[in-house]
Simulated scan of single mutants.
Amino acid sequence: MIKVRTGDLDLLIILIVIGFLFLFPKLAPQYLIVLSTSLFVYCVIAKSWAVFSGPTGYVSLAPAVFFGIGVYISALFSFKLSLPILVSLAGIISFILALPMGLLTLRLKGIYFTIFTFSLIEFFRHFILWSESTFFKTRGRIVAIVDYRMVYYTMLVIFALLLIFSFLLRKSRYQLALKAIGENEDAAAHCGVDLTLTKVIIFALSSIFIGASGAVMAMRWTYIDPYIAFNPNYSFIPVLMALIGGTQNFYGPVLGAVILGLLEEKLITAIPHYSLAALGVILIFTVMYLPNGLMPFLSNILNKFMQKLSGKIQNDLRLNKKLKV
């Protein structure tokens, strides 16, 4: 009997999904391509958040900061730089800014860390608003518009790189260090884990993909300002998606982002003033009845079904052997 290792299976699934998504724009109408781009953004932010916050238990609300930085990098340089260079620049600047932010905030724990990271959204929003009005006598900026197919493929590349990074990280010693930090920081330190270095590096690396996605997403808009760029929803909603999908599972944040992204699209159309309240109710029920998220729940159902199917096949084979005898 041939046994397939979980890591090999995950890599195969990633390649198949990316291959299908690469061909998708050639088959789908424009609306579905644009919708898929929005889902990519949610998937990237939710998965990036889960890479660090999932194993460590540090609930960061900083994704909107890095997303907004990427948006403003795009607004500043979209008419001067090519798209690949622009996206790379947004990721690099997000990484550079995340290093001192991580050194400052990751000394805190629990609710204090969460509140501090949320306050960074307000700080950057008002700082850029003040800078724009003081030095440039403006509030917002015009962004160069790129073809929607180019935006789709660029987001697909960012999403693919994030999955590969997450896959490699899961196989590395840093993932074990993150889990040890999440279970008991003091014990992890006694085992030789460099707490500060591990937390700051992974926190900063995960910010690269969020900043890059912000730079790409800005090109779908004709105008941005600090209130659009540093919208707290880009912290709250992806975190909600990751929690509902399951932060401890490799595919959980992506599943949660796809399901809630589609649901949000319907809710905004049906009940625009109550869509966020409806998402909050969904989170409450998820925490109450599915504390580990949807993906572990679905995995358990699938495992039980496969066990029953395997048992049935084995019984049928035994029965056939008896009949032959």
Rank of each mutant, 00 (worst) to 15 (best):
K321W: 04
H190A: 14
V65S: 08
V59M: 15
S131M: 05
C191K: 15
A64K: 01
L76F: 09
V287K: 01
Q314E: 15
A50K: 06
I115Y: 04
N320A: 15
K321A: 06
S206D: 02
H273K: 15
L89F: 11
Y58K: 14
T286H: 10
D147K: 02
G211Y: 05
A62W: 13
L120W: 03
Y274N: 10
I244Q: 14
T105I: 05
V17T: 04
A229W: 13
A62C: 12
A46N: 03
G91Q: 06
F95Q: 04
Y174D: 02
I13Q: 05
I301L: 15
L15E: 08
L162K: 01
E132W: 01
L290Q: 05
F40D: 04
I45L: 14
L11C: 07
A212Q: 13
A75W: 05
F118Q: 12
A204E: 00
L168G: 04
V34W: 00
S310G: 15
V146Q: 11
A160R: 08
L169S: 02
L106D: 07
M217W: 12
L309I: 12
S310L: 14
D10R: 12
F77Q: 07
V325E: 10
L260W: 07
T114L: 09
V71H: 00
Q307A: 12
K179D: 07
G192L: 10
I85Y: 03
G261S: 08
I14R: 07
F118N: 08
L86P: 12
A144M: 05
L104Q: 05
A229N: 08
Y289F: 15
V254M: 11
Q175A: 09
I14D: 09
K321I: 09
P272V: 02
V157I: 14
F66T: 11
S119W: 00
R125M: 00
P84R: 00
G54P: 03
I96L: 12
S131I: 00
W130V: 01
G7E: 13
F95T: 03
F95K: 02
F79V: 08
S213V: 13
I142T: 14
L279A: 05
K322L: 15
F22V: 12
A62E: 10
T198S: 09
K304T: 08
G19S: 10
A98S: 15
H273I: 09
Y274D: 06
L163Q: 08
T222Q: 13
V4D: 04
L323E: 11
R173Q: 15
R220E: 13
E132G: 00
F203K: 10
L163M: 12
A187Y: 00
F24V: 06
G68D: 00
A144G: 09
L156I: 03
G7N: 11
S275P: 02
F236E: 07
A204H: 02
I158H: 04
A277V: 14
F250W: 06
T37G: 14
V157D: 01
V4N: 07
R125Y: 04
Q307L: 13
Y234G: 08
L195K: 03
A278K: 11
I121M: 05
L267C: 05
A218K: 08
G280Q: 02
S206V: 01
L162V: 09
A188S: 12
I45V: 13
F135C: 00
G192D: 11
S310K: 15
I96R: 05
I121G: 00
I14H: 04
E122G: 10
G70C: 03
S131F: 11
L290P: 14
V143A: 05
